[in-house]
Design a protein around this nucleic acid. Sequence first.
DNA 1: TCCTAGTATGTTATTACATAACACCCTATA
DNA 2: TATAGGGTGTTATGTAATAACATACTAGGA
Lengths: 152, 152
Amino acid sequence: MVTSKEVQMQDLIRQAEALCQRSGMAFTAPRRRVLEILAASETPMKAYDLISKAGEGGQATKPPTVYRALDFLCQLGLVHRIEQDATFVACNHAGHAQPVALFVCNSCLKATEVAYDEVSHILEKAAAAKGFNLQRLVVEGRGQCQECAMAA
Amino acid sequence: MVTSKEVQMQDLIRQAEALCQRSGMAFTAPRRRVLEILAASETPMKAYDLISKAGEGGQATKPPTVYRALDFLCQLGLVHRIEQDATFVACNHAGHAQPVALFVCNSCLKATEVAYDEVSHILEKAAAAKGFNLQRLVVEGRGQCQECAMAA
DNA sequence: TCCTAGTATGTTATTACATAACACCCTATA
DNA sequence: TATAGGGTGTTATGTAATAACATACTAGGA
């Protein structure tokens, strides 16, 4: 059986290859490995879980290798870092350049991604009203997802 | 000369005392000390800078002491944690319970606080549209503040 | 008065998160 | 064929946060 997770992963990998080729960067083994692990995970992962997972299949994998891959993937928008708890999650809408909000369920820990054009405009205006020129925005939430609400 | 920073600090301390009394909690020495240091700082501070600063006036101050004080002050809304870079800043509008966005200048590192009722409603709706019940929200930005824009 | 529950701090040790610095390897191109 | 740029491997270290346990103060009940 081919799960939807697996399909999503194939998509992400292809997206990544395409993005790299377009921008002249290499989609190397460690970058692929990190993206695969994240894409296969149900929930956002901590860096050190990623590191040990990446090291399972033979060769040892050390922190800098994984952090470098994460930086790279974040810049491409294929992975998001959740600042609240220093975790990393593969992006659902791979390749979007737009900002997204990430809502993490307190029960199952899964992340829900939501685009927020409208919100960013408002915040830009609010910032501008105080003379602040907004360049980067982080929007994150915690709460309860639909599945967990049903289950409760 | 009495600076506005000092006035702000006096205000904050009084707010803190009042809040604690109302809720039956103690505004103890380490809590006061941490709040004073943060209120006196121009910019958000890292926890370990706080720790060494707190330890300057005689007695050694260890991480748990400061982290406990920070947790306490954050819960009261007197201090905010900036998730992006793990720093802490005294709250401008002491005692507000409402959510605020924190915009940090990339040049001078000062934080600007902005209330955002409107935004939180929108995000709650956006979350609700995906069945997500939003309980806590983090909104943070980076960019350039007014002063630094003028100077450039 | 003495006990005990609740709140808070002090201290040691450890766990978790992240990066600096340097050696080495590819590969495109001048 | 030299060399510059991009990338990885490795060691070591820096930085952020908490677990676990001992101790102290205070308020209220027996």
